[in-house]
Amino acid sequence: MPIRCEIVSQDRLVFEGEADIVIVPGSLGEMGIMPGHAPLLSTLELGVIRVKSGELEDVFTVTGGFIEVQPDIVTIMADAAENVEDIDVKRAEEAMERASQLLKKDLSVDPDTYLRIEAALKRSTLRLKIAAQYRKRGQRSRPPGMGTSE
């Protein structure tokens, strides 16, 4: 019996469907959630969510958030999440470029700004890495545009 998986980010419903296993970057390390898992509440780190159902695999980047597990449903509340097929590589490259320029140029910025730029850098690096990794394998589990809102 598959487990239901729903991924919502703050501005949209990202994914909704059945899965055999959902692998998430928990705060204490990677977790694989299978049907019948005990109730769990955890924070998420920056990383990759993999939703496997039979031969199909959907991959998402996540920048942090929460996961709630009930025996029959996994709910992921992401700060921001994106299907790997939808990653705009060009935009991510630009963002990475911008962030690393900013960090090189001015190290005297206040700590908050520094952290924000660093987070942006981490995010864009992750997206590029994941996009390269999963797209090279040619593992298109589904036609583009399906399973995501809009």
Partner: peptide, 13 residues
Amino acid sequence: EIESLTGGYIFEP
């Protein structure tokens, strides 16, 4: 939603 039985949560961290 199917209202599932909620036992005690496992909390992480």
